[in-house]
């Protein structure tokens, strides 16, 4: 038996449960209620309400990605500088939170940030506040950054750890100061890790709807919330499919700018 036939079950699965569902949603997006062809569903992304939601989603995703890079890079550098003999520890710390249910963790943030929550209690003791950030975009941003930060730290940490110490030492021997070593050696060599991180943060941050549901207090509508409501509340499946397809095209276009390396850093080494 030839080895490549072993992949037959997987290929059947790919066709049956990855490709055909995508065809189905595309077909549904191109149909109106009576079953005739229309582009209206897909183009409805530019309706004022949907467009506003899309722009807010983009803004949140962009801000979240930038904040995540800024927070994650130094954290990855410090993790690396601890010279742990096992890579496992860093990954352990970052994966472990995923085992506390994600909706509960976001609900915990709601309690922390609420007007009479833990944060304001602490600030009150210091004589500051109270801050009114619950149900605002600030709370939404905090929750989004919180949820996706590990997916930024992990790939950057892996990329920095994989840099050969000899390369850094060679740079030092040739007279580079620590600033030059960082800008000319470490940063360029860890760029692929940053790209993986950006991909793993930007797309889910843009398309999530649960975080906005909980921390936005129903006032902030992301494009994910609108799509979800088309399916669960207004029961307009064709419109929902159309928006999903537009969202997918949008995501693919933004990925095309950053892609080209496959995702090998999704934190599997912890196990």
């Amino acid at each position: 038996m030839k080895r490549k036939y072993l992949s037959a079950p997987y290929l059947i699965w790919v066709v049956g449960f990855i490709l055909l569902p995508l065809v189905t949603i595309a077909v549904s997006a191109l149909m109106d209620k009576n079953g005739s062809f229309t582009l209206e569903n897909i183009l409805s992304i530019i309706d004022p309400i949907n467009r506003q939601a899309l722009l807010l989603s983009l803004g949140i995703a962009f801000g979240c990605t930038v904040i995540c890079v800024l927070l994650a890079y130094p954290a990855a550098m410090v993790l690396k500088s601890l010279h742990l003999d096992k890579k496992g520890f860093a990954i352990f710390i970052l994966i472990l939170p995923m085992w506390m249910n994600f909706i509960l963790r976001i609900l915990a943030w709601q309690m922390i940030l609420s007007n009479n929550g833990v944060l304001n209690l602490l600030l009150g003791k210091l004589g500051i506040g109270p801050l009114h950030i619950s149900n605002s975009w600030v709370a939404l941003m905090i929750g989004t950054v919180y949820d996706f930060l590990p997916f930024m730290i992990l790939p950057i940490f892996n990329a920095i750890s994989d840099i050969d110490e000899d390369t850094i030492e060679a740079a030092r021997d040739l007279g580079a100061g620590s600033k030059a070593v960082f800008w000319k050696v470490i940063l360029p060599l860890s760029a692929p890790g940053m790209v993986s991180g950006v991909i793993m943060v930007f797309v889910p941050a843009m398309t999530s709807f649960v975080i906005a549901d909980i921390l936005g207090g129903g006032k902030l509508q992301l494009i994910g919330n609108i799509i979800e409501q088309e399916f669960t509340k207004s029961m307009n499946w064709h419109a929902g499919s159309g928006l999903s397809i537009s969202l997918m095209i949008f995501v693919l276009v933004s990925l095309a700018f950053t892609m080209k390396n496959d995702l090998k850093d999704k934190g599997t080494t912890v196990w």
Binding site: I18, T24, T207, S241
Partner: peptide, 23 residues
């Protein structure tokens, strides 16, 4: 095949979920 393998990871979860449901 590897490009297709990346689809479920890269695609938005909400799109994957809805596509599967419609199917």
């Amino acid at each position: 095949v590897m490009a297709v393998t990346n689809i479920p990871i890269l695609n938005a979860e909400i799109v994957t979920g809805i596509a599967l449901m419609l199917w």
